[in-house]
Amino acid sequence: MRSRVPSVTVLGVRVACLPSNQVLAAVGELIDSPGQSLLVYVNAHSLNVTSVNPAYRRVLDTADLVLNDGSGLAIAAKAQGKRFPDNLNGTDFTPRILELAAERDAPVFFLGGEPGIAEAAAEKLTAQIPRLRVAGCRHGFFGRTEEAGILRQIRESSTRVLIVAMGNPKQELWLNQHLGATGAHLGVAVGAFLDFAAGKVSRAPSWMREAGVEWVYRLMLEPKRLFRRYVLGNLLFLGRVAAERISTRR
C-alpha cells in the first residue's frame, strides 16, 4: 500500500498526503487484509527523534501508513509548496479508525497506559461507539518476562485492530517487532490517546485544536516536563526543515 499513497517527504520520512476520507478508505483495506500492517502518526517531536534513533527511522520507512500530526508538519509541507489536506492527529483520528473497526465488526485490543487507563478508555469509547467490540485491555507497564504471556493474550482474543499507547518511539518499535505474533491485522501506535480517551488528560479548547496549537495547551499544563519537547524541540525541528529546504535548493 505504501507505494500507492501520495506523500510529502519531511526530514527524509514519507508522510501520507491524503484527505481524511481517503485515509479511512486505506485503513479499511488494512483492517480487511489478512496480513499485518502498521499505522503510525508523526509530529515535530517524533521526526526529531529519528535523527538520533536509526531503528525508529527504519520503522517509519517501512510502516504502511504514516500520518501527519500537528502544525509542524503543515509548516514543513508548506516550505515545499505543498499542503496536507487535513491534520490527522492521533487523538482525533484514532476514534474514526475505531468507528471503522466497529462498522466491520472487527475486535479491538487496547494496550498501554498506566494500570486501569486502557479499561477506562475502553468504557468511554464503547459508550461513544456503541458497536465497538473490545477484545481486551492491558496496561503498558510490563517487563520482558511478561511479554510472551501478553502476546498470547492478544492472539487468543482474536483482535483485528491493536491500539498501542506506550509513548514514542517505544510503541512503534514494539509493534514493529511483535505485531506478527499478536495475530492482529492492523497495529496503531497512538501515543497519549488512551490518557485522553480515559479522561486522565484534558483536551485543549476546540479553537486551539482547530488552529493546530494544542501543544501550547499541553505545555501550559506541564511546563517543566514538556518545555524541552515543545519549545526547544519545535525550534530544532523548524531549523532542520529550513536546512533541508536550503540543501534541496542547492
Rank of each mutant, 00 (worst) to 15 (best):
F84C: 08
F109D: 10
A63E: 05
I75C: 02
A79K: 11
N89F: 04
E156N: 13
A118Q: 03
L151V: 05
A63M: 07
T145N: 11
N87G: 05
K124Q: 14
L132H: 11
L125M: 15
G167H: 05
G143H: 13
V134L: 13
E146K: 06
A118H: 11
L65C: 07
R138N: 08
G167I: 06
P107G: 11
F142D: 01
H139G: 05
T91W: 02
T91D: 10
A165F: 07
G116R: 03
F141H: 10
G113Y: 01
R144Q: 05
A122D: 08
L111S: 08
A148W: 05
V161Q: 12
F93P: 03
D86F: 10
P130R: 06
I117W: 09
P95F: 04
I154S: 03
A76D: 12
A106G: 09
D105T: 02
R96M: 09
A122M: 08
L111W: 08
T159I: 03
P85R: 06
A120F: 07
A118S: 09
R160T: 11
P115W: 05
V108W: 12
R138D: 08
A148K: 11
G149I: 03
G167R: 10
G167C: 07
D105V: 04
R144F: 02
G72I: 07
F141I: 06
C137W: 00
V134I: 15
T91A: 15
N68W: 03
G112S: 03
N87P: 01
R104L: 06
G140P: 05
G136Y: 09
A79R: 14
L73C: 07
P95T: 11
D105R: 15
L88W: 01
G140A: 03
T145W: 05
E123Y: 01
K78Q: 11
A74I: 12
P95E: 11
A106E: 09
A106P: 09
E103N: 14
T62A: 13
G167S: 06
L73N: 12
G90Y: 04
P115V: 13
F141C: 06
K82A: 14
F141M: 07
E114I: 06
A122T: 10
I163D: 00
N87E: 09
A122G: 08
T159Q: 12
I129E: 07
N87Q: 05
